[in-house]
Design a protein around this nucleic acid. Structure first.
Lengths: 298, 298
DNA sequence: TTATCTGTATACGTTTTTGCATGGATTGGA
DNA sequence: TCCAATCCATGCAAAAACGTATACAGATAA
């Protein structure tokens, strides 16, 4: 590597960019937390060093010369890289340590969060992540968790919520079940299947009705309030279970039933308490979760 | 724009990258033209400012920590942008002025160079470009030109030559000619066409023979030693003319004959004299021509 | 026109950064 | 084991950069 072409003063380059974007040396100085004379000298020194007149001094304010305009894109590239560096560094910072508690349904906690947290480990290795897997919604204001992944918007206006996107769900059954009972191709055939029950069978029955699926409680031949267990029951061929497509799609042997059936799509909300604004620790986890979940949903 | 995240010392960032890539503070200092204590302090200050331990001091030499490794890509992005800035700035430099004489065949000079020189104007606005359009090969050592675009490698070993790539040629005729005489679909039919003559008709006849095209001098019903004129004669429908596909492809009305005919492909050489090594003026034109021609050829 | 506001350039004392010299520490080979 | 080579950290004086204060210039409005 030949460094000779890169030994100009990079801080002066930043000063030039700030001046160009802010429109004046004074504004740039304020933005960068320096003084106007400093910016003035840095910009002048940059022009001398690279032998390019970047600005035309026209009375009050400076104007970019055509030569300067050709350089701006490169300066912006430098700034963007510096911004990326800053973000990465704040993740790697030794100061960024401590515990962040994330809550989500047991299914998401078991099926989706591990991958995301593996990526997060790279970005912020000193954080300790506590995953609270519970289908009951935790109370963020009482600090039962710092960040919640839920399908409902929180009611409390004190909480900060970000809509990640919408996910869809479908009915799934294992191939072994379908081999024995046939593949249901209509809502009527589906209504005759065995189902796996989640926490509240009556709520499930009510939830199925608008889809045209009419079942009775005794069709729920296997039950578990734990979503992961219920999913395993379905994988064992014990019946049909509605499941988020996100979770189900990578599961071999499980067949998505009636793909044309329009199941309700449900929103993905990421919620946290006000400390998001003051805690870099929580912010970086929140932002990373938002990014990662968004890429899962889309 | 919020500059707070970017106000760390960018020169320190460069010091960190150089140290990481060179493997030691001493080597980095030598590469950057500074001293080892300076680098030592810059790296330490960077680590303090961003609260990241980038290097592990292990006896002789430093080793990147995992946290540091996460930052290297961003640092390289910054460096790459700085390099781009440096190149652009050297083009825009007020010092980069004077004349550069480029020679090439009249066809390339008229049909290809203008576009390339328009781009070059943006990159190096203070240069004066003199285009020597001549089908005779100019003598670079006698400074009849600074840079030559040719299809032959220069014999003199004192000259610097770069192979740009290979271009192909084909026979072309105007639609109006083909309307009158029909489209030749075999070498025999092509051998019966009228041709446009360039400088030396006998050499053209010899050149056609290995392709299976046998013509006589009196089939060259129109002639010009000037390639652009010959091309215009062909566009007027006066006959068939072999032409570089590069030049011909964007010419409406001109039809490429027998696309399956394997015409010889010819190399593109960019040649200059030794001053390339000492003149930024010539170097930037040479490099820009090489880039632009390469994108034309490929 | 004049007063005022906004913005840039320069002088000067202070702070920060740099290079030189040096000491301490580790590695590799005699 | 000892020596030489290599490399990093630190003290100190010189050099460079910075901030404060101020002077100067164009734009705006009374």
């Amino acid at each position: 590597m030949d460094w000779k072409n890169v030994t100009f003063d990079w801080n002066q380059a930043r000063a030039v960019l700030a001046t160009a974007e802010q429109g004046s040396l004074s504004a740039a100085a304020a933005a960068l937390g320096q003084t106007q004379p400093t910016l003035s000298r840095q910009v002048a020194a940059f022009e001398t060093a690279l032998k390019v007149t970047v600005f035309e001094r026209v009375g009050r304010g400076l104007t970019l010369t055509p030569a300067g305009a050709e350089l701006i894109n490169h300066l912006q590239d430098m700034r963007d890289a510096a911004l990326g560096l800053s973000l990465a560094a704040s993740g790697q910072s030794q100061d960024l340590e401590g515990e962040v508690r994330i809550t989500g349904s047991d299914v998401y906690a078991a099926m989706i969060l591990p991958d995301i947290l593996t990526q997060l480990r790279r970005v912020a290795p000193n954080l300790i992540i506590d995953v609270v897997a519970d289908n009951q919604i935790q109370d963020l204001q009482r600090r039962e968790a710092d960040i919640a992944i839920r399908h409902v918007r929180p009611e409390q206006p004190e909480l900060i919520a970000r809509l990640i996107g919408h996910a869809s769900g479908s009915f799934y059954a294992h191939q072994s079940y379908l081999d024995r009972h046939g593949i249901p191709r209509t809502v009527e055939e589906l209504s005759a299947c065995d189902f796996i029950g989640l926490a509240d069978v009556d709520r499930m029955i009510d939830y199925f009705k608008p889809l045209g699926i009419h079942v009775t409680a005794n069709q729920f031949k296997a039950r578990s309030a734990n979503g992961v267990v219920a999913w395993e029951l379905a994988k064992a061929g014990l019946g049909v279970l509605p499941m988020s497509d996100l979770v189900a799609q990578d599961c071999p042997g499980m067949v998505r039933l009636m793909p044309d059936l329009k199941m309700l799509s449900f929103p993905f909300w990421l919620t946290t308490h006000r400390e998001l604004h003051t805690s870099a620790r929580i912010r970086i986890v929140f932002d990373h979760l938002a990014d990662a979940l968004r890429s899962y949903v889309n």
